[in-house]
């Protein structure tokens, strides 16, 4: 552990109000759900933050996956990937989410890490975020000032930047009732190996009468919805035309794990694979 933990401040709120007060009063506070990201930074002393808020005391409030009567689904801030992955309603209605939780880290990570943390962390390679984007997820942001609902697709403003204010916490992911038939949904994680891998490219896509959704990870500074490509497909564009547009919506880079060129080619192949799948399930 390269970080000297003795230099860190940690608060562990016992109630939601206490948590929100701390958010308001303590500057630079980094919230921790399962810690699967923050402890990696600390291990490598890659993060300058000195003040942390461990939310484990709020499990009774926030560790839930709840199917609501209005057909929506709520995923609490402390619900783990495993909670989501093995939830019967999620399995039935949101297969992309199940698949993306399954390929996030290994079992040990899935038992600690949370989809809300995955969003808050803001990695463009987040495995569950493209699935949530496809399902039109909304986020409940809460502060002592009140609560607001933000579309996930409007949440990210840049590389690891988002619309949250420093006194807010994400308390829940809200998924509207599902629109898509299982056969018209597709998920792909392209990693460096079969398991326990950081993504080179992530894709979640689906189609229904209401339209096509294409969401990508690791192709831009944030996870993205390819809105222009979606619109073109909606207007009858063929695969090649869709690819022409998608190319302009993505901005892959070379990094330690892969190359921009590879990411571009894989994005093309996955797009074609997805459109083929749709064509075969008409």
């Amino acid at each position: 552990m390269k970080t000297n933990v003795a230099e860190l401040q940690v608060c562990s709120p016992r109630s939601i109000d206490e948590a929100l007060q701390q958010r308001r009063d303590i500057p630079g506070l980094t919230p921790i759900a399962g810690g699967t990201e923050v402890l990696v930074w600390l291990n490598d002393a890659k993060f300058a933050g000195k003040t942390y808020q461990s939310l484990h005391g709020l499990a009774k409030d926030w560790r839930y996956v709840r199917a609501n009567k209005d057909g929506t689904l709520g995923i609490g801030a402390l619900a783990t990937y495993s909670d989501v992955r093995f939830h019967p309603v999620v399995k039935e209605r949101y297969p992309l989410l199940v698949e993306s939780a399954r390929v996030t880290g290994a079992l040990q990570i899935q038992n600690r890490g949370t989809p809300v943390g995955n969003i808050a962390n803001g990695s463009p390679a987040a495995d569950t975020v493209p699935s949530l984007l496809v399902y039109d997820a909304k986020l409940k942001l809460k502060s002592l000032r009140g609560e607001r609902l933000v579309d996930l697709k409007d949440f990210f403003t840049g590389y690891r930047r988002n619309v949250m204010t420093s006194d807010e916490l994400i308390t829940e992911i809200v998924l509207p009732p599902p629109l898509f038939m299982p056969a018209q949904q597709h998920y792909r994680k392209v990693g460096t190996r079969e398991a326990q891998a950081i993504s080179k490219v992530v894709f979640a896509g689906a189609r229904s009468a209401a339209g096509v959704r294409l969401a990508w990870g690791s192709l831009a500074p944030t996870t993205i919805r390819a809105l222009k490509t979606e619109a073109a497909l909606q207007n009858g564009a063929d695969a090649n035309a869709a690819w022409e547009i998608l190319q302009r919506e993505i901005a892959p880079i070379d990094d330690i794990r892969s190359t921009a060129e590879y990411r571009r080619k894989v994005a093309r192949n996955i797009l074609f694979e997805f459109l083929n799948k749709l064509a075969n399930t008409l």
């Binding site: 990696v40 290994a106 460096t192 190996r193 079969e194 398991a195 326990q196 891998a197 950081i198 330690i256 794990r257």
Partner: peptide, 10 residues
């Protein structure tokens, strides 16, 4: 994380 050796799944 970035130098990967085969896992049981591989």
């Amino acid at each position: 994380t970035n130098y990967v050796i085969p896992t049981s799944a591989d």
